[in-house]
Design a protein around this nucleic acid. Structure first.
Lengths: 349, 349
DNA sequence: CTGTTAGCGCTTTCAT
DNA sequence: ATGAAAGCGCTAACAG
């Protein structure tokens, strides 16, 4: 409170330090960069270091980046972000990117967002050195190939050998089925997401694997595809129920592709007067905080999306810094099943 | 496919254009900046413009920023982002910031995030020229005052005359009450958020205003405070129900501070065997996509958070560019009440 | 009117 | 072992 606080105190530069220390700016630079091949009087070095701290020196990232001809920034392309998984991925990626001295630019590839040019510019103007891609079916402007820069796919799959990081949906889904089987369920339905997407297909594979491992038979009549919306889920579930009434044995448990789908299922079941979990168990294959808000709260498989974001960023930064594509990393295992109230023992027949 | 694609084709610079056009770089710069005081041979100007397009010239933002001694970036401080409102704010702000030639850096002020230093560095190293603040109770590292840079509070209130943009929670809440009153409800309960926060208090004020305008009496016994969590909401609602059983007339409708709270209310009501909306209407005072997933889907007041983000960014950028604080803008009106299935006519007594 | 020059803050040869 | 100087790409004085 005694010091004058200048409105925008100019930041200390290398030159400031150099002048006061009586050395050249290049020397200060070297000291601060901790160049190993530097053999300087310890006393001088200390003086410079002290000065730097005293003046609260922070390198000017833009000057550095101009001379290095590098941007030290990477982009993250996300679709709609209603999805909590994306926010987790963002946090994880952001964290690592910052830790490693880069910065993260986020571009929304919202499909009903008219001018994607805006985001193309975001990428172009900032000359990001790499791209984290959490979306596939996106406008060509986001094609990393177009800019010939490194990229890593996050939880996406194009069938090629793109660099990518994934979460192990297959094992997660399998374990979910095993959990249900452990509860005594023998007829388990599955309201799946679109099988056109890799994530849909891999979960289905996990579903079958779980069934097999539990010694249960796979019945195609018990799986129905829907998009990830709630409404579609309702009609899918309704269909399942009707089929069951038409003589087929009714399932005692149902896996939902995600929480929104489980919401639709819950609604349908409620309307049909089927009690959850007493008469039917419901499990969501992809947990979000919303699962806690449903009635009953829905048991769900949790995945480490923050870690996924971290892994993706590390991967990308490695590619950028080492210029090589690291070995394909194996999918991240799930975080276990968050048991809430929507699953119970299979009703005795 | 016939052209060679160099791995990282160096970007065209002003010098490249200048050379080919046979003019000085400064001339090119002036043409491209569209300096009005420039009187150049139209033919030359055209040639330069053509060349720029042909070479896909994009200014190097870092060089420009180095020389201008400005960062052309602003920061956005967000708390936990489980909340869809924040993602909307981010999108709106991002949009405007990009349109106006800046870039947006997002810092998570997550309270259980140990090293906020990381984010302090984000701000310091990038020398953001201003801050959008969607959080208050945050570590001092995010104090814009510390950096003496412009800032605007987004939907926050510190009791001072900080520059800020708001959404009109008061009118929204009032209109919600009016809506309920229009449905015939005369005893309306309110499970409020923490009254310590401005957003909590302003909604309560709106609640009272609505009651008054509908000619209904405010009954303190009908409002109960809870944090925004679902569990707390459940016990709050349970309390309300018990009080009602103890002889007080039971409310026929209840306003929930947000969707999570409405979820708790729905659960409690379900457990108590009270049908929604037949016996009791439930309305959430702050809509999110989650409202659609509850059973029944919850009617809620919608707010234009994307616009809020836009307004906040415009405001901040105006401050930065004009150096003055624009007049306090009035709160953004709500987007109306999204009618879903949780509200119905008051049951006849 | 347009070109030449200087300089933003940094790193990195190249000399000494 | 350190310092001087050049240069990253751009804009803004200053000349001509």
């Amino acid at each position: 409170m005694s010091r004058d606080q200048h409105p925008a105190p100019r930041r200390a530069t290398l030159a400031d330090i150099a002048r006061r220390a009586g050395v050249a700016t290049s020397t200060v630079s070297r000291i601060l960069l901790d160049e190993k091949t530097l053999n300087i009087r310890p006393e001088t070095r200390q003086r410079v270091l002290d000065l730097a701290r005293e003046l609260a020196y922070r390198p000017n990232t833009r000057a550095r980046s101009l001379q290095a001809r590098r941007s030290f920034s990477v982009g993250l392309v996300v679709p709609e972000i209603d999805n909590p998984a994306f926010t987790a991925i963002i946090q994880g990626a952001q964290r690592v990117v910052l830790e490693r001295g880069y910065s993260l630019l986020i571009a929304y590839a919202d499909k009903d967002f008219p001018d994607q040019d805006l985001y193309a510019r975001l990428v172009e103007d900032n000359q990001v050195e790499g791209l984290l891609v959490t979306t596939i079916q996106t406008a060509p402007v986001f094609d990393p190939v177009r800019w010939s820069i490194p990229y890593v796919l996050v939880n996406r799959e194009r069938g090629g050998d793109d660099p990518k990081v994934m979460v192990d949906y297959q094992a997660g889904t399998r374990d979910a089925v095993l959990y249900l089987a452990g509860l005594g369920h023998r007829r388990i339905a599955y309201v799946s997401g679109p099988l056109a997407h890799y994530t849909g297909r891999t979960r289905l594979a996990g579903f079958k694997a779980g069934l097999a491992q539990a010694g249960l038979e796979f019945d195609p009549a018990l799986v129905v595809e829907c998009d990830y919306g709630r409404m579609q889920a309702e009609s899918a579930m309704t269909g399942l129920l009707q089929a069951a009434q038409a003589g087929w044995p009714i399932p005692t448990a149902v896996c939902a592709a995600n929480v929104a789908v489980s919401a639709g299922i819950l609604a349908t079941l409620g309307r049909a007067g089927i009690a959850v979990p007493r008469q039917m168990s419901v499990l969501a294959l992809l947990d979000t905080f919303v699962a806690d808000m449903l009635t009953p709260p829905v048991t769900a498989v949790s995945y480490p999306f923050i870690d996924l974001g971290r892994a993706a960023a590390s991967h990308l930064l490695d590619m950028i810094e080492q210029g090589v594509q690291p070995a394909q990393s194996r999918p991240l295992p799930h975080n276990g099943i968050t048991v809430r109230a929507s699953c119970g023992p299979a009703p005795s027949v």
